[in-house]
Design a protein around this nucleic acid. Structure first.
Lengths: 250, 250
DNA sequence: ACTTATCATTCATCTGATGTTTAGATGCGC
DNA sequence: GCGCATCTAAACATCAGATGAATGATAAGT
């Protein structure tokens, strides 16, 4: 479901992705899931053609896409191998999305959360200082959507919308490019906690606190409110993770 | 020079990048430089073939690479257009590198610096808490290289090496994926201040302070030392920027 | 033992043909 | 003139097949 949600937002509705894109996604997912291991040579072009039932041009374009994301390394005359994880573009939206196609490693989720806890309070602070009225209105709207959400699905979308609006209001392009980190972490949390409606209820006032601080142009308060919210989120996530890891165990 | 430095580090030495990669870089640079404007349709495949003197497959692979970086949008039957800057993968190493092929906008450099100031003190703190001995040794080595650098070039490389080592020592994959932000900001600063050797001298003790704090496992001190260093860097950068903008003026 | 030649494998590029989609032009009935 | 179906040129998507160039392993020669 989570990946559906992701690509629903990304692909223009009703547009069928090209074959190259499809092959790229399939390979990307397999690599992220560890089915194709780091350092390993993957099938050669001809074999990939057979396996996917497409022509060589499609395969080559798909591979190029993955090379661009730092996941594959092609050497002429030798073959194509999976690069080590350290050189993947983990901040690429697709790469992040592929992490949700299976149960992500707990430590990766924690690392995502660590980075969010660094990034978002600052974003809130900057937003309090520099947001335009229109940008604040966007945050306000997202907040309203959360309060008025009728379904769990609707709540999740409004939640993502809220965090995105705050990030944009910070008026920092580099920060905005990290939207995917927040979105990915958020979706993972939702999935792991099974989107418990009680959790959602609880997080509404925390979001409102952030909004109020930004409206009041109080950077310090905005930062603290966001910190408080994220600590709450992290606690819930940690609970869900330990429940999963002691039970299902890899 | 800066781009040379970047690709020297990235491309395996002596390896000629494929035509598709070359075309991709050329198009990417033109887009980043604003020569191809956002929202604009670029030449169709045939025209690009003529212009670059390559076949259609090469063009298609190059375009796919840029699509993967969020810079182009291809619609079958219609054409290929430059996506708006907000959807570019600004954190992609190539995209960052292309920003150095021309004089970057001051506000972009400031935004990079803002993000560094958020990221790096935390990285230093995490490193102080969780770095392995080997990771600390890497930081120490970089520090030694800075102190013993014989050329300006050597100093810059050691400086980058230091910041990279700290980032890695933080043991957070997502953070590590942001290495490019730091590297890019660092190179821009160097270029703008013309790598003044006096500046370098001055920054040595600031780096040492960071190293010592990490060695002492003092997260608070590491964070503060890194903050101090970055504030110094920012001040120099701000000076160079205002000098440039009042003079050359865009 | 060391160097050189050969060879199969694999990626890189080119060529040209065919299918699909899109946007806009055309033409028709009203 | 307006609305609508149809047609068409432009542009991307995919395929098939051919040739070139780099690599690594193996075999041959010294």
């Amino acid at each position: 479901m989570s990946e559906l949600l992701y690509y629903d937002l990304k692909d223009a509705a009703g547009v069928v992705p090209s074959l190259a894109t499809q092959v790229c996604r399939e390979l990307g997912r397999r690599i992220v899931a560890g089915h194709l291991r780091e350092g390993e040579l993957i099938d050669d072009e001809n074999r990939l053609c057979e396996r996917f039932g497409v022509s060589k041009s499609v395969i080559r374009e798909a591979v190029k896409l993955l090379v661009g994301k730092g996941m594959l390394e092609v050497r002429r005359g030798h073959g194509t191998r999976v690069r080590r994880r350290a050189s993947w573009n983990l901040l690429d939206d697709d790469v992040l999305a592929w992490h949700q196609g299976f149960e992500p490693r707990s430590d990766f989720l924690r690392q995502l959360m660590d980075v969010r806890q660094v990034i978002e309070p600052n974003a809130a602070a900057w937003a309090a200082r520099s947001a335009t009225e229109a940008q604040i209105a966007a945050v306000r709207l997202a907040q309203a959507n959360m309060e008025g959400a009728l379904s769990v699905q609707g709540f999740v979308v409004a939640d993502a919308q809220f965090h995105r609006a705050v990030l944009r209001a910070a008026n920092n392009e580099v920060l905005m490019a990290m939207e995917g980190v927040i979105f990915s972490s958020l979706l993972s949390s939702i999935r792991l906690t099974n989107a418990d409606p009680r959790d959602n209820k609880r997080s509404v006032p925390l979001h409102r606190k952030v909004l109020n601080a930004i409206e009041a142009r109080d950077a310090e308060a905005a930062s603290n409110a966001m910190k408080e919210h994220l600590e709450d989120t992290r606690a819930r996530l940690a609970g869900a993770l330990s429940a999963r890891d002691t039970k299902g165990g890899h």
